[in-house]
Write a protein that binds this DNA or RNA. Structure first.
Lengths: 195, 195
DNA sequence: ACTATCGGATAGTGCTACTATCCGATAGTG
DNA sequence: CACTATCGGATAGTAGCACTATCCGATAGT
C-alpha cells in the first residue's frame, strides 16, 4: 500500500495531523480497483498507473482516455514477437468483411493474428467459420460494453467504465468461456456424472 | 532454446554424432508452439511445461488432457485474491439459467466473479443483460471450439487443438474485441476521420 | 518526561525468464 | 596427423518486476 502510493497509483490520504493520515472509503475503492487491474486484468504496475492517471485526468477527451486503456492492455509481460503477415491478412479480411471501421495499427489485429499463428503451429488453420464465430462473439461483447457505457451519464463515470470495462471484459469472457467448455465437454465425454 | 530443453519443454534433437544434433521441422513447430503459449497465451514456463507434457502423453484420456489446459490457464502470474461471494453467486445464477452443466469448483466461475468485483469497484454493477451478452458470446466461442475439434480425427490432433485452443482462444477473442471497440468508438466519437 | 506508534524514505528480497561464460570433445582443413 | 573452429552441455550470472523489511525522526498519548 505504501508501495502503491510511491508508484503513484494511490493518492496520499488526508492529513489529520502532521504524522496521521486518514483514508476515506474512496481510497478503499481505489485499492480494490488497483488490485482488480493487477490481478484480474493482468496489468503491470506501470500499465495500471497509466490507466488510473487517465481516470483522474477528467479533462482529457474520452477518445484519448479510451486509447490509454487499449494501450495498457497491449503492454505484455513477456515480449511479443511479430505475427505473420498471412495471419494479419486473415484477421483483416474477416474484420473488413464485417464492415468494421478500424485503423491498420490497431494492436488487436496483431494480437488476434498471433493467436492464429499459435493455432497453425499445431496444424490448425482456423476456418472462416471459426473466425467468424469469434468475431461475432467479440462484436456482441463490444456492443454490450457500449450499451453499458450509454447508461452512465457523467463524463467521469463513462471514462471509468470505458477503461475498466476494456481491461476486465477479457477475463470476464475468459471465465465464462471456461465454464462453457466444461459444459460442452460434459456432453462430449459422458463418462463423468453431471454436477 | 537450450533453456527450453533444460526446462523440459523441448525434446533433445536427434544425435547425428557425439557432438552434433539435428533438429527436424517438428522441433521448429514445437518452438513456435511454446512461444505462442508463452507470449500470446501468457502462460508461465511451468504452465507451458504442463501443457506440452499433456500433449505428449498420448495415452491419457482426453478429459484429463483438457483439465491440464484449463488448469494451466488459471495459474496466474500474480497471486489472485478470492472473489466476493455475491459475484460468484451472480455468475453461477447466469450460468445456471443458461442450463450449463458445470462443477462448483470450475475456476472460470471465480475468474468471472473477480472481473465482476473489479467492475463494481468503480460502481458498475453489471446488469443481467450485460452478463447475458458475455455469456452468450462465450457460448458461441465454445461451440466454435467444439466444432473445430470435431473436424479432427486422430486422438493426438484432438488433444492438441483442445489444449492450444483453450489457451489461445482468449487472446483471439481479446484482439477481436479490441478491433470491435475501435469500430464502436469510431461511431461514438465521429470526430476522427475513418481509416 | 517517556514510551509507543505513525508516516516516510531507503535498502533488500524472491521469483521468473532468460543470457553469458566456460569446458571438453569432436569435425573439418591443410 | 596436427590444428583450429565449432558444437553441445553445464554452471553461473543477469534484469526486471512486485513487493517487503528496516530504519528514522517526529508526534500522540499517558
Amino acid at each position: 500500500m505504501k508501495y502503491y502510493q510511491r508508484e503513484g497509483l494511490l493518492p496520499a490520504g488526508e492529513r489529520t495531523a502532521p504524522n496521521q493520515v486518514a483514508y476515506s472509503g474512496e481510497h478503499v475503492q481505489r485499492v480494490r480497483l488497483i488490485r482488480a487491474l493487477l490481478e484480474t486484468g493482468g496489468l503491470s504496475i506501470a500499465a495500471a498507473k497509466d490507466v488510473i492517471s487517465a481516470l483522474d485526468a477528467s479533462d482529457a477527451p474520452l477518445s484519448e482516455t479510451f486509447e490509454v486503456a487499449q494501450h495498457a492492455m497491449s503492454t505484455p509481460r513477456t515480449k511479443e514477437s511479430e505475427p505473420s503477415e498471412s495471419a494479419r491478412a486473415r484477421v483483416a479480411a474477416i474484420v473488413v468483411s464485417r464492415g468494421w471501421a478500424f485503423s491498420a495499427d490497431n494492436p488487436g489485429i496483431d494480437a488476434a493474428a498471433r493467436a492464429l499463428d499459435g493455432l497453425s503451429a499445431i496444424g490448425f488453420d482456423a476456418p472462416d467459420a471459426y473466425l467468424e464465430a469469434y468475431a461475432s462473439a467479440a462484436a456482441s461483447a463490444a456492443a454490450a460494453d457500449l450499451r453499458a457505457l450509454s447508461e452512465r451519464t457523467s463524463r467521469d463515470a463513462i471514462a471509468e467504465l470505458m477503461v475498466v470495462g476494456t481491461v476486465l471484459g477479457d477475463p470476464l469472457f475468459a471465465g465464462l468461456r471456461r465454464v462453457a467448455h466444461e459444459d460442452a465437454t460434459h456432453e462430449m465425454f459422458a463418462t463423468q456424472s453431471p454436477k
